[in-house]
Computed example of a mutant assay.
Amino acid sequence: MSQKKVLIVEDDGAVSDLIAAYLGNAGFLTHTASDGFSMQMALEKDTYDLLLLDLNLPDSDGLELARTLRARTQMGIIIVSERSEPEERAKGLEIGADDYITKPFFPRELLARVRNVLDRTSSNDDLRIDRDNVVMFAGWTLDKSNRLLVSADGTSPSLTPAEFDLLAFLASHPNQLLSRDTLAESVPEIGAESGERAVDILMSRLRKKIGDEKGESQMIETIRGHGYRFNSQIKHSAG
């Protein structure tokens, strides 16, 4: 298996060196950049599997950098920031980051999150299809094993790991009222500490990608004051 490459964008040299050393000892190839310009130069010269991005850069707004990158790539993005408020975490999810960790952090936790995001974003052509993990609803086919969503016409929308996990959890609990707290706990990228708004933002993004943007089809129903309910009839693959 080839080594995964991680780009660390952090203006604090001590923090950057710590992350690079820890991930390097864990078997990752790392490259560091101290600002947005250096990050762009690194991305032009090489490809990376994961980006660790600080928000407070001397020449750029980290959130805007993440938003721009998410629009053009499915590379894993983990925000590493001193901003610990739930509102900031929600913003990170809103622009499409796969995870958000606050400083100061425990290096072992960072490593676990890095591995988790890479596991979710890496393609694996050798995955075995488990028919119990292939479900169909409203013209969609959801393959949980291969983390793939396919429409009736064969197209596959690009879902972030958090969006896929949310949809998979909803499809596993059809016709059940699910609170925002339950949904937050079911999606590792959100985390219960991120608050209800993070769930609503993620749900809005998911609805848009599956054609239920305004909730008009009632595939995902909003139960005001309580949470959400997945109303589509679920069929399991007989393959």
Rank of each mutant, 00 (worst) to 15 (best):
Asp12Leu: 12
Leu111Lys: 07
Thr160His: 02
Ser194Ile: 00
Asn116Trp: 13
Ala33Ile: 05
Pro157Phe: 07
Ile223Gln: 05
Glu82Met: 12
Leu118Pro: 01
Arg147Gln: 09
Leu177Arg: 15
Val9Phe: 14
Arg108Tyr: 14
His173Asp: 08
Ala192Arg: 15
Leu53Pro: 03
Asp119Ala: 15
Glu94Trp: 04
Val187Asn: 01
Ile234Glu: 00
Leu202Thr: 00
Ile223Cys: 04
Pro86Ile: 02
Leu118Ser: 00
Met75Pro: 01
Asp59Ala: 10
Ile8Ser: 04
Asp200Gln: 08
Gln3Asp: 10
Arg113Trp: 04
Asp46Phe: 02
Leu23Thr: 09
Arg83Tyr: 14
Ala26Gly: 02
Glu163Arg: 10
Gly215Thr: 12
Thr141Val: 15
Arg67Val: 04
Asp181Ser: 14
Thr222Cys: 06
Ile223Arg: 11
Thr182Trp: 07
Asp17Cys: 03
Ala152Glu: 12
Lys209Ser: 12
Leu118Glu: 00
Ser2Asn: 06
Lys91Ile: 14
Asp35Ser: 13
Ala21Thr: 12
Val6Lys: 08
Asp130Lys: 13
Pro157Gln: 08
Asp130Thr: 08
Lys45Asn: 00
Val134Trp: 02
Phe230Val: 00
Phe164Tyr: 11
Phe137Glu: 07
Leu149Arg: 04
Leu178Arg: 04
Pro161Phe: 07
Arg131Leu: 11
Gly92Asn: 09
Pro104Leu: 10
Glu10Thr: 08
Asn25Ala: 14
Ala33Pro: 03
Pro174Ser: 06
Met41His: 10
Gly92Arg: 08
Asp49Thr: 00
Ser204Lys: 13
Glu163Thr: 09
